[in-house]
Simulated scan of single mutants.
Amino acid sequence: MLNKFDLTGNTALVTGGARGIGLQIALTLHQAGATIILTDADINRLAEASERFATKPAIYQLDVTDSQAIRDLAGKIKCPDILVNNAGVSRAAPTSQTSDEEWRVVMSVNLDGVFYCCRAFGSLMAERGSGSIVNISSMCGEVTTRQQSVVTAYNASKAGVNMVTKTLACEWARSGVRVNAVAPGFVWSEMTDKYPEDVIKAWCDQTPMGRLAHPEEIASAVHFLASDAASYMTGTIMLVDGGYTSC
């Protein structure tokens, strides 16, 4: 059974992989035996991140909002066995104060980027007859959090990611491609570090497990869905939220 978690011989492409959850996902998949392709919009951070791997990954600067750049990369490299769409941003502001530009930035990165990458790489996987895609969603694609209810664009984008995941899972199921998503709750990261201490405390108080997740805990869920241990799972939105959405 444990052999099903072994990713030796597989190549995994991770977007937004230069820091935080994305970097931890890449490190975890590498530890499980995968060869890593790391992409991010920040080439300097990519170079720094690559030093943390036992075997340096291939690194590519990639803006996931640029559909042509994604097509170009897909034409340049061998189609990966695993695709993790992790790149994401958030903007916290009351809806009345959210500008058109802020709305588009969030939707472009979080939703358009997932679709563009799935279209480019998932189509190649379907032609080949195998592949596993794991999209990074959020529990905010399922529920509106009580302490942080001013992220309309973020919540809408993640709900969109969930539906893209389910739709592609059905479309490609008989082509040998599985498409799933991990929906984290509150996680310690650069994104959450910017919030005040009282907000962090409220998140912990509202989470049944009483704490935020560590990036490694999200990465473990991605590893499972990417591996043969989840061979009969597709279209799943796996919540990793410390029980938040259960209450």
Rank of each mutant, 00 (worst) to 15 (best):
K4C: 09
G131T: 06
T8K: 12
V106Q: 04
P196D: 07
A202S: 13
P94M: 07
T95D: 12
G131L: 07
Y60R: 04
M209E: 14
F5H: 08
L168F: 12
L239V: 06
T35E: 15
A87Q: 05
V199E: 08
V89A: 08
R71V: 11
N155L: 05
A173F: 04
V143D: 09
N155G: 12
A156P: 10
A47C: 08
S123M: 12
A159W: 07
D100C: 11
V240P: 00
M107Y: 09
C204G: 04
C79V: 15
M191S: 06
I59W: 03
D81W: 06
D205I: 09
V161Q: 02
D228R: 15
L212W: 02
Q61K: 14
V89C: 10
D241E: 01
Q24E: 15
L168Q: 06
D198N: 14
A32L: 11
N86T: 05
C79A: 14
T152F: 04
N162R: 04
S189P: 07
G88A: 12
V105I: 15
A47Q: 15
D81L: 07
L212E: 11
K4A: 13
T11I: 11
Q61M: 06
E171Q: 14
V240C: 07
T39W: 05
F53S: 08
E190N: 13
E171D: 14
G160A: 01
S227P: 10
A26K: 05
G122E: 01
I43N: 12
E171Y: 04
N86F: 00
D205T: 14
C247M: 15
W203I: 02
G20C: 02
R45E: 14
E142P: 01
P215G: 02
G185D: 01
V182L: 05
D81I: 08
E48P: 01
T234P: 07
L23A: 05
C204Y: 00
T95F: 13
T95Y: 11
I136D: 02
Q206P: 07
T165M: 03
P208K: 01
G176K: 04
V199I: 13
I59T: 14
A74W: 00
